[in-house]
Design a binder for these strands. Sequence first.
DNA 1: GTTACGGTTCTTGTATGCAAGAAGCTGTCA
DNA 2: TGACAGCTTCTTGCATACAAGAACCGTAAC
Lengths: 231, 231
Amino acid sequence: MKEMPAKGSGARARVMEGLRQAIVSGEHRPKQPLYESSIAAEYEVSRTPVREALKQLQSEGLIEIRPRVGTFVRSPSRREIVELFELKEMLEGMAARLLAGRGSVPILDQLDENIEQSSHAVERGDTEEYSQLVHQFHELLVTGADNTQLEVHYQQLMNQLAYHRLVSASLTQPGRPDVSLSEHRRVLELIREKDGFGAEFAMRDHVRSSERATMSADDPLLGGRPLRKEL
Amino acid sequence: MKEMPAKGSGARARVMEGLRQAIVSGEHRPKQPLYESSIAAEYEVSRTPVREALKQLQSEGLIEIRPRVGTFVRSPSRREIVELFELKEMLEGMAARLLAGRGSVPILDQLDENIEQSSHAVERGDTEEYSQLVHQFHELLVTGADNTQLEVHYQQLMNQLAYHRLVSASLTQPGRPDVSLSEHRRVLELIREKDGFGAEFAMRDHVRSSERATMSADDPLLGGRPLRKEL
DNA sequence: GTTACGGTTCTTGTATGCAAGAAGCTGTCA
DNA sequence: TGACAGCTTCTTGCATACAAGAACCGTAAC
């Protein structure tokens, strides 16, 4: 009916990308209802592609569809967050080990560059900038592992966590950025030394450390209360 | 239109469950086309719930939808299989470690029982029976870790691998069942001793050992050719 | 005040019709 | 014989109409 081609391929893909972005970024708050008809109107498509997109997002754990009732943005419980961090620890540890085993690849230079920029950001006390660099560091690591399946599961996991929101909150704790940065340095060092298991465990330690910092921080989108009190 | 209630809830759930089972079990062979209209007719529903089910199965990596062309059962490439095993190693290692950390839980007795039965099956040379017990052992381990997120990712991974098919093939190699069983014993032993990291690494070693056996075995559903030659 | 009941109005679930694009076939021409 | 253009016939993609169930609100009885 409408001939607006918009972006890439079909209507469903467009809707899914838009919704996922909106949910992960926090634009759509947890528990918020998502009406098929509203979304359809917003994207100027019919309900059919919207429904298909919603079903896929449900598979990814981002939303919850209660039959004949409604669709809602899902917010992980405290227990789920702990579980997701446990998984994150394994996946990122795996990434570090695999990357160490790949020898010298260009991505290592990007990681060096990241550490360099992070160092400056921390010195300046620019937590917003550092927060993004942290995100990039972890992304580079997982990408550099060169394992597509790992990447897929990792992305799904991170979407559920709405990770960048959490980490931003954790970095406001005094001293946390310095600790975080030195842990990043240590991981990269071991990767450069091709010490696979050393890198894996340094990374796993780092994730646990980051988890502790995150869980004791306040998340502004969860009502500003510490996560440790949520459940 | 038809009032056959069949199983549980809605048409989509029924179709999805049926299709997933058919694909994972090998009833639908790789590369085989799946026509929406045929499936709709088979389940006596319209194309709409079928389409939604297919989209979800695509998210899980079981099928591939080529727009305006058709839907096909996906078969992982050799590279993907290697990647999936690398993930499996981490996830099952994690499960063993978590289970060791839980202390004495009833599931440990089920694992003992499993080892007991496995022992008899191996002695009798009943590889079919042992194959199922292997499957159960790994399932029990992951379930016993008591981490829902882990379970979800694990199940998704195993569905993609069509794991039980692969493992059946690997167990036909002479001596393999004995090695496999003794590795299972070792893992459970370390779990009983509450040695988390010991259990994790014993399990990871076991998965790698199992991977090597699998990759050199013939898979009857992949044309009977060794996987190592596929790509 | 509280509770039970009925109807209204939402929501999502499913069926169906039509459009768009891809693959393959067929006939023609060089 | 080989190649190419056009058509036929498939497929999925999307839009729309209708059905079914859930939540909610108002009313009446206790």
